[in-house]
Amino acid sequence: MGTQHTHPGMAFGVPAEFPGLQALARQLQRSLTIIDLETTGFMKSDGVPPGIVELAYLRVTTAGEVHSYQHLVNPEMPIPWQASRVHGIKDSDVARQPTFARHAHHLADLFATDLVCGFGSRRFDVPVIKASCLKRGIPVYEPAQLDVREVWTGRRGGGAKGTLGEVARHFGVTVGEAHRAGGDVLTTANLLEAMLKAYGVEAVLRAAINIDQAASVVVQPPEPRPETVSAPRRPTAGRPRPAQISNAIMEHVDSTGRIKPTDFESLASNLGCTHSAISFEVSGLLGAGRLTCEQVEDVVIQQRIAYRLEDAIEMVGGADRLKPLKTALDMMMDEPVCYVQLRAALIRREEQSLYIPAFEF
C-alpha cells in the first residue's frame, strides 16, 4: 500500500511498506500508531504537562495502509531556550500555529482504538498527551501500549542504556532528524521493524501491556484520596532488607574496588531484589559518604551528564531537586539517567565550586 495521509497537517516522507508492522497490525487486528512529541519541558510533579510544540505519528492500519502526520503546535506558553536548544523550535516558529486543542480529539480517538508505540513513550509521550487532553476537559483513553525502548531493555537487561539513535544504529537502522517529531517517529518505526525481524513477534509483544483488553476511558483526573494512617509495612518474606543490600554492595566494592552500573543486575539477581533497589542503596551510600565518586562513576555517562547538567539545573531552578533534575536530563539526553550517576555528577560539581586555588606570592 502507498503512503496515505488523512488528518489535516503535514505528511512526512515514509516508506510505502513496513512488512513487519503491517503483519503485526493484521495479527493483532489493531492498527499501530507510532508517536513522538517535542515539548517545552517535562511533566511537573503535580501532573501539569509541558506545552507541546510539535507532534508526529505514523499509523499502520489493519488493512496495511501507512499514514503519516506531523505538525508544529502553539504551546500557549514561552519555549525555554534550554528546550529550544534540544529540538531547535523557537517561539517564532509556533506563534501562528494551532494549539493542541485542534489535535486533541483525534489523538484521543487513536488512543481508544490503536496500539500506541514509541521510544520511551510510556514514560513521557503518552502521559503528556493524556494530561494535555484532560487539562482541556477532553475525555481520553488509557491506550494499549508497546514501548520500543522497553523491548531493547527487556532483551538486554534492565540496566541497558541507549538513546534512540544509538539503539537504531545497533540494528543498522538509518537515523532520521533527531529531536524532531517526524524524524524520531520514522527512526522508531524502522527500529521496531528491525526488532520484529531480529527477535520475532512474540518476544516484542512481551514488552506490551493490555493488548487484549479494551481501553478504559479516563474522564477526569482522579480525586485525591483521603489521608489514612496505615500500619507499618512488614518486609516481604524472602526479600532482602536494605541493610542486607547495603552490606552486599560494600562487600562487592571491597572485593573489586568499585561498583559499575553493569554490576547492578547481577547483584540484584544474587540477592533476589530489583535493579532499582540496588541503585537506590548505592545512591544512599554515595550520599552518606560510604562510597566515593571514583567507586561508582561511569566515565561515558558522566561526560554525557556534564554536557547537559547546567542547562538542566537552570531549567528546574536549582541543583537540590533531584527528581525534577533527573526528569529534565532524561528529556535532554533522550534516555533515563541513573540516579547514582546523577548524584555523583552533583557531588563533583559541588567539589569544584568549593575548590579555591591557592595564590602564589
Results as ranks from 00 to 15, higher is better:
Val48Cys: 01
Tyr141Arg: 10
Thr33Gly: 05
Leu346Pro: 15
Leu271Ser: 02
His170Thr: 13
Pro357Trp: 03
Asp334Pro: 00
Arg156Phe: 13
Ile259Leu: 13
Gly20Lys: 06
Ser246Gly: 09
Ala248Val: 01
Lys260Gln: 13
Val337Met: 11
Ile301Thr: 10
Arg348Gly: 06
Trp81Glu: 12
Ala358Gly: 08
Thr62Ser: 09
Leu55Trp: 00
Pro98His: 03
Pro127Asp: 11
Ser132Cys: 02
Thr33Leu: 09
Glu310Gln: 15
Ser266Gln: 15
Lys260Cys: 09
Thr256Phe: 15
Glu150Ala: 11
Gly317Ala: 03
Thr163Tyr: 00
Leu107Tyr: 02
Phe42Met: 11
Leu186Glu: 08
Arg155Cys: 14
Ser276Gln: 14
Phe359Asn: 07
His7Lys: 03
Cys117Ile: 12
Gly287Lys: 12
Arg321His: 09
Ile313Phe: 07
Gly41Arg: 02
Asn74Pro: 15
Thr174Asn: 00
Ala181Val: 12
Gly154Asp: 15
Pro139His: 05
Thr6Val: 05
Ala160Glu: 07
Leu309Tyr: 02
Ile356Thr: 14
Arg26Phe: 00
Gln303Trp: 01
His7Trp: 15
Phe119Thr: 00
Phe111Ile: 06
Arg156Val: 00
Leu24Gly: 01
Lys197Pro: 04
Gly88Thr: 03
Asp334Ser: 04
Gly154Lys: 04
Arg96Pro: 00
Cys338Ile: 08
Ala11Arg: 06
Val300Glu: 12
Thr292Leu: 12
Glu223Gly: 06
Lys260Asn: 12
Asp114His: 05
Thr39Ile: 02
Gly165Ala: 13
Ile347Trp: 12
Thr113Val: 09
Leu191Arg: 04
Ser68Met: 03
Thr174Leu: 04
Gln220Tyr: 10
Ala194Cys: 13
Phe359Thr: 14
Arg349Leu: 12
Gly2Leu: 06
Gly182Trp: 00
Glu76Asp: 14
Leu309Ser: 08
Gly317Asp: 09
Ala63His: 15
Gly64Arg: 08
Asp298Phe: 01
Arg233Asn: 13
Gly47Ala: 07
Lys161Trp: 09
Ala101Val: 14
Gln341Phe: 03
Gly287Pro: 03
